[in-house]
Amino acid sequence: MKTTSVMIVGVGGQGSLLASKLLGRLLMDEGYDVKVSEVHGMSQRGGSVVTYVRFGDKVYSPIVTEGEADVIISFEKLEAARYASYLKEGGRIVVNTQQIDPMPVIIGAAQYPVDVLDELIAKGVNVEALDALALAEQAGSSKAVNIVLMGRVAKSLDIPYERWIAAIENTVAPKFVEMNKKAFDLGYNA
């Protein structure tokens, strides 16, 4: 099996690390060779963060380069645009429509591009936008954006629904399991 490449991008503090942990563990349990690469350090402090998840029969490189990603899961609009060039032909971007202004925008040194997702769509990029924040709040916590997005992506990865639910049960703290399952379903059915 050819290696599949997934990128999870967002803003430090949005919970992308939990998403990659969940996905990586699930893929390993499904019998794939898996590599998950993330850069720690300053990521908690509002910077742009990117995690690579690659799986297949035998995975060598832990990172994804331009034109290689089968799926990009973006927690924020601008970050989807930042990493769009990593998408391969025929790949897709699943993006949370939330806008988080970076500091250069906040202080007026740069502009947040308007309609940046439309721009990508106009160029033929397969963009699936959803308001994951609203769905997460509906599930019970704004922090569940990550699980909503995983639910949205789950449909197209060749792993049964029940396995995802089991992975959530194994990964998140017991008291948050029900809320996260709800968040997953909201994303899955979005």
Partner: peptide, 17 residues
């Protein structure tokens, strides 16, 4: 090179803070 598409709008940096 692998084919890829990117946005034309300038993408502001998001430095840690």
């Amino acid at each position: 090179d692998k084919a890829s598409v990117s946005a034309d709008s300038p993408i502001p940096a998001r430095p840690p803070m």
